[in-house]
Amino acid sequence: MSTAAIDLREGDVRDLDRVDRLMAEAFDPRWGEAWTRNQVIGILSVPGVWLTIAELNGRAVGFALVRGVLDEAELLLLAVIPNARRKGVGAALLRSVVTDCAMRGIASLHLEVRDGNEAIKLYRNSGFSKVGERRDYYRGPNGQSYAALTLRRPTR
Rank of each mutant, 00 (worst) to 15 (best):
D12V: 08
D12H: 08
D12M: 07
D12L: 02
V13E: 11
D15L: 06
L16C: 09
D17A: 01
R18W: 01
V19M: 02
V19H: 03
L22Q: 00
M23D: 08
M23T: 02
M23E: 14
E25H: 00
A26M: 00
F27D: 00
F27K: 00
D28P: 03
D28F: 06
P29T: 08
R30V: 03
W31P: 14
G32Q: 03
E33R: 06
E33F: 06
A34I: 00
T36R: 04
R37G: 02
N38P: 00
N38I: 04
N38G: 14
Q39Y: 02
Q39G: 00
G42D: 14
S45C: 09
V46P: 05
P47T: 02
P47D: 11
G48L: 13
W50C: 05
W50F: 10
L51N: 01
T52D: 02
I53L: 00
A54C: 13
E55V: 04
L56P: 09
N57C: 10
A60W: 09
G62K: 14
G62L: 07
G62R: 10
A64H: 02
A64R: 12
R67E: 15
V69N: 04
E72Q: 13
A73T: 06
E74G: 08
E74S: 07
L75S: 02
L76W: 10
L76D: 01
L77F: 07
A79F: 06
A79S: 01
A79P: 10
V80E: 06
V80H: 10
I81W: 06
P82Y: 01
A84T: 14
A84D: 14
A84L: 10
R85E: 13
R86Y: 05
R86L: 14
K87E: 15
K87M: 15
G88P: 10
G88S: 12
V89T: 06
G90H: 03
G90Q: 03
G90Y: 03
A92E: 12
L93W: 10
L94P: 07
S96I: 05
V98A: 10
V98K: 14
V98R: 15
C101L: 09
M103K: 13
M103L: 05
R104A: 11
G105L: 09
G105N: 07
I106D: 01
A107V: 15
A107I: 12
A107S: 13
A107F: 07
S108C: 11
H110W: 10
H110Y: 12
H110D: 14
R114N: 13
R114K: 15
R114Q: 12
R114C: 12
D115Q: 13
E118L: 02
Y123R: 07
Y123N: 08
R124I: 09
R124L: 05
N125D: 15
S126F: 08
K130Q: 15
K130A: 15
K130I: 12
E133F: 11
E133M: 11
E133R: 11
